[in-house]
């Protein structure tokens, strides 16, 4: 195993294809001061990082490593922003469906300005946008709607109205890529609010129903077209829908 170790080139913009079991990097937190973050598809064990999925290995400037693969099924990962549906109340927790194999929980105290007296009331079927803080193999995932400074930062219950639809996970990641002009292109035509969960759920709200359908269909384009093609065609699609 050690002899054929060949760390993939992690320079930006040129991702390498990795297969499950491939060694990515040797990392020992006791020896180095560098702190790195592992995203979906990577596992740290015996001081080495190995791939658990096949796909493209990517690295963000903030040292988050993850494997970009095409799948529809969501596997919870710590620090992911997700859109969930409230299933039921259970004591001090709400059970939330985030599209994973297990339902996630959220304490009613993990909302902005929440206390034992002023608790946020959520109904079954409401949508919630939050961040995963616990995502382990054998535990229920847990969500929060506040950051480490107790601020909501856009998280919390999503307002009434709008439309929810599901896209494959790689499309969701593509949408929120900072250098992606796609959502910006849509906004040239339509004013809209969008919430993208990394679990593939996308929520869009506009003033008119027709526009919501247009934005929804434009985003669904990304599933079958490359980014460049979609960017070229997005305005045409929107025009044809409105």
């Amino acid at each position: 195993m050690g002899s054929d170790f060949r760390a993939p080139d992690l320079s930006e913009g040129d991702p390498t294809v990795v297969l499950p079991g491939d060694l990515i990097l040797e990392y020992d937190p006791e020896k180095t001061q560098d702190r790195i973050f592992l995203g979906p598809g990577l596992r740290w064990q015996d001081k080495t990082i190995t791939a658990t999925k096949c796909g493209l290995l990517r690295k963000t400037p903030k040292k988050i490593y993850f494997i970009d693969s095409q799948q529809k099924r969501y596997v919870p990962e710590k620090r992911d922003f997700v859109v969930g549906i409230i299933l039921k109340k259970r004591g001090d927790f709400y059970m939330i469906d985030i599209g994973a194999s297990m339902a996630a929980t959220i304490s009613y105290l993990s909302f902005e300005n929440a206390s034992k007296k002023t608790r946020t009331e959520l109904d079954v079927g409401d949508l919630i946008y939050g961040k995963l803080i616990v995502a382990n193999k054998h535990m229920d995932p847990e969500l929060v709607c506040i950051d480490s400074y107790d601020r909501a930062m856009g998280m919390g219950r999503l307002p009434d109205g709008g439309i929810l639809f599901t896209v494959p996970l790689h499309v969701a990641r593509l949408l929120i890529k900072p250098d992606n002009p796609f959502l910006h292109n849509i906004s040239k035509k339509i004013t809209y609010t969008i919430v993208v969960g990394l679990n593939g759920r996308v929520w869009v709200k506009t003033a008119r129903e027709g526009e919501m359908v247009a934005v929804m269909n434009a985003i669904l384009l990304l599933e079958v077209m490359s980014m460049e093609e979609a960017n070229k065609k997005v305005l045409k699609v929107l025009e044809s829908f409105i």
Partner: peptide, 27 residues
């Protein structure tokens, strides 16, 4: 696996759009 629950948002969005004469796939 359990079926994904239907959120209130999906339900109202669909009925509202149908009321306006729109379907999700523009049929």
């Amino acid at each position: 696996m359990k079926e994904t629950p239907l959120s209130t948002c999906e339900r109202t969005a669909l009925t509202d759009m149908v009321e306006c004469g729109l379907r999700h796939d523009r049929r």
